[in-house]
Amino acid sequence: MNRSHVGSTIEEHAARPRHISWRRPGTASPWLAAPAIIIGVLFVGVPIVIVIVYSFMSRAPGGTGVAWPVTFENWQRLLFEEDFDGNRFFNPQYLIVLWRSVWTAALTTALTLVLAVPAAVWIATRPPRLRSLLVLAATIPFWTNTLIRTYAWMILLNDQGIVNAAIQAFGLDPLALYPSLFATVIGLVYVFVPFMLLPIYTSAAKFDFRLAEAAYDLGATRLRVVTRVLLPSLRPGILAGCVLVFVPALGAFIQPMLLGGAKVDFIGTIIQRQFKESQNWPFGAAISVALLALTLIALLIFAVGSRRLAAQGEKARLL
């Protein structure tokens, strides 16, 4: 490019009217958000309303759908049972299932947390190229369907599976690993670990390791550096990971159904059963709404936690 040519192009530019393709953020047309809002209302809002309405209806004669009249029967059934004489008894059966779902979800959250924190910190301290490779590796499980991955655990844990084959090779008796609650938790942890790992990794990648050096310098041992400096800095990621694991684990049904066997019910499995085998949509709807309420309570607790973090100056507002 020669000099005179450069000069002429600059003049041409100057002659043209100035066109600035820039807009103040937040001034774009609100209609751009319309598709998402419509989809949200149509496929999230409306169905929730339908489920709530269904929970106050009666069972349809054929079993599919709902029928009149309006009734509180389904909600009562969550806590009470009626015998043939019409006497009402307190029946904790469903409360027990709800409780089991809650603590299994909590256990899953805790186990994924314990697995994810060291892994996330380890990844975050690798050289940049290896780091992106490892993060990609953490998403590999998403490439295969959850159902298939859960079937894989059935094959691994059953009486003739390789785990028991290995145990027997040492001359020990095979363990009843499958079906069981133990297998369910393994399946849940396995599926949900990436959801815990990725947000914690995001926090760990932002962690300023000079803070750890400062703590050492001030007399902190390795353990104190982890508990007093590293973990508090990972809180936003930990919080997000807990939401992403606890909430879906609470309503999970694939793992309890495939790995837990018929005896161990979870919210997810009984909801599924009401809609299929038992053909009782209104009662299924009532349990679904109960699950929704439970989820909201859990989110509320996490939200309070994140608000406390936000008060500490961390950008971690969830709700």
Partner: peptide, 20 residues
């Protein structure tokens, strides 16, 4: 000696204050 056993302390260039 490891850093936590040395009776010296550092003021870091980027301060490294604990944000939480």
């Amino acid at each position: 000696l490891p850093p936590f056993k040395r009776k010296v302390n550092t003021v870091f260039q980027a301060y490294a204050l604990f944000p939480h």
